[in-house]
């Protein structure tokens, strides 16, 4: 069971990494200033989670 939980945990990091990549891609592409700020705020928890800081 411990191995399964490790695999699931890794999968979650991969899911978050993929979402982070898509948000970052949208951040680079957007020309709307307000959207860009919101994307940056949205990125914060996702990046910190990937880096395992929080």
């Amino acid at each position: 069971m411990a191995i399964l939980y490790t695999i699931i945990s890794v999968c979650y990091y991969l899911i978050i990494a993929f979402i982070t990549f898509v948000i970052a891609r949208n951040l680079v592409k957007t020309k709307n200033f307000q959207e860009a700020i919101l994307f940056s705020v949205m990125l914060m928890p996702f990046i910190l989670r990937i880096l395992r800081i929080k």
Partner: peptide, 21 residues
């Protein structure tokens, strides 16, 4: 898949944004 994922995030900007804020 990437295009659908991008559209999904674009659709959800107000929702995800508001939840985090």
């Amino acid at each position: 898949i990437l295009k659908i994922a991008t559209n999904t995030i674009n659709t959800l900007i107000p929702l995800v944004g508001i939840m985090i804020v």
